[in-house]
């Protein structure tokens, strides 16, 4: 686990340390089993190609989960992920590297909570954002209250 992040350490515009993922077909099969999503475009190349896809593609929910991990790794154990929104816009082929990135868009205190809003996205090796989204986290404050 990364060290604990505090509200006071965060500035608007700051980048979240990227998380690099390499979803292989093996990982997609594991995800199918763990999530219960057995749609064949995610593990059967012939099937995927028969639907017009270039090959097996990663599950959208897996990409959302990668982005959730980006956030929970960053905020540390004392932080809480309150909202995450992800659009599965582009497809990612199995075996292609995916980099999860994010940037702080706003920090504010509301009802005693120290909140930070971020834009987040997954990026393919060509720099295209395949799953853009946003997240809101509540962070610990050095002042004591979260």
């Amino acid at each position: 686990m990364a060290k604990q992040l505090y509200y006071e350490d965060v500035e608007e515009g700051m980048e979240i340390p990227p998380l690099v993922k390499n979803p292989t077909t093996q990982q997609l099969v594991k995800w199918a089993g763990a999530s219960g999503d057995y749609y064949q475009i995610h593990y059967d190349k012939d099937f995927a190609q028969s639907t017009g896809l270039p090959g097996v593609i990663a599950h959208g929910r897996l990409k959302s989960s990668f982005l959730a991990q980006l956030m929970t790794d960053w905020i540390g154990e004392g932080g809480t992920l309150k909202k995450i929104s992800v659009q599965h816009r582009g497809m990612d082929l199995a075996g292609e590297q995916m980099t999860c990135k994010g940037r702080v868009t706003r920090k504010y205190i509301e009802n005693g909570e120290h909140l930070v809003e971020c834009e987040i996205w997954t990026e393919n090796p060509r720099g295209e954002k395949t799953a853009p989204g946003s997240a809101i986290v509540s962070l610990l404050s050095r002042g004591g209250k979260s």
Partner: peptide, 12 residues
């Protein structure tokens, strides 16, 4: 007839 997963918003 084809259904794709367009995305998800979670609030915890």
């Amino acid at each position: 007839p084809r259904i794709l997963d367009g995305g998800v918003d979670y609030e915890f």
